[in-house]
Nucleic acid binder design. Structure first.
Lengths: 145, 145
DNA sequence: CTTGACCTTACCATGATGGGAAGGATTATC
DNA sequence: GATAATCCTTCCCATCATGGTAAGGTCAAG
């Protein structure tokens, strides 16, 4: 199977398959005499695994660890679970940050007449002085990416 | 005021100030005879504006529009409100995506024993075959918890 | 044997940010 | 005033995962 077929079968673009090989996420594919990469059903299965992990927001580094566990028949499911929970925690952290932004924006937008007059609490707030950030809740905060 | 002072006063790093100038988000700063950039209080205020907008997740492109409206004394607050609402909508979209990931991961992790045995529904799911993605929706209702 | 679809590598771009090097300017200390 | 420390300048590189393009080789069908 050529790279294009593997791409179609796995949902990972040919471009990304080459990239994953280049960075060592997947082992180098076999090659035909002419240099074409060749893929087996097993390779496609691995690519689909990567695709699904990516869809769950895992970064390549984490996917690499997941793949290693997948291949390790003597793995401990605790290790897999920990990766999943780390991922959940990271997602929740980012969700909380964004929810805090939404709360602030929503608060500001609600106070904006949204007509043809120039007065606007949104700009007033960005302009500073006031600290803004809807007292909201709590929300986590910070930043970090 | 030199760039370092402007950075401290605005919360935007010197590196980013130069970058914002380079991409045209802010006008070129004045220069001393020796080529040092010089900043006024007005410049610092603009940088703070940018910093706050960035903290609310606005992209540079949107910040550019916000700055234009900020400077336009005959602006219509409706235009500002629209930018804010677009931002809210974008954030909510991303939040929804991530919540969907969390729902799926949470569902899978809950089914994983997390001990020293290798069996793991998380890997089974990534492996494929089953479509996974917690049917979800959220639904708050029902299902577990 | 030509055409078109596919493959290869190599380079560039993204967005916002940081790091570092090489060298000049300014400031503080002796 | 000399020297050292700090600041500034520009330029280049790296991130992360992805896409685009270009130049050229390969393969299968007509």
């Amino acid at each position: 199977m050529n790279i294009g077929d593997a791409a179609k079968a796995s949902g990972v673009s040919a471009k990304m398959i080459r990239y994953y090989e280049q960075i060592g996420l997947i082992p180098p594919a076999g090659r035909t005499g002419a240099g074409y990469r060749v893929y087996t059903q097993t390779d496609v299965q691995m690519l689909r695994f990567i695709r699904r992990a990516r869809d769950l927001g895992f970064q390549v580094e984490a996917i690499s660890e997941l793949l290693a566990l997948w291949r390790d028949r003597s793995r401990h499911s605790a290790d897999v679970k920990r990766l999943a929970e780390d991922q959940i925690a990271g997602l929740r952290r980012r969700i909380a940050e964004m929810e805090s932004m939404v709360a602030t924006l929503d608060h500001l937008a609600r106070g904006c007449s949204g007509d043809d007059r120039p007065d606007c609490p949104i700009l007033d707030d960005l302009e500073g002085d006031r600290s803004l950030v809807v007292p909201a809740c709590h929300a986590g905060a910070g930043f970090n990416r």
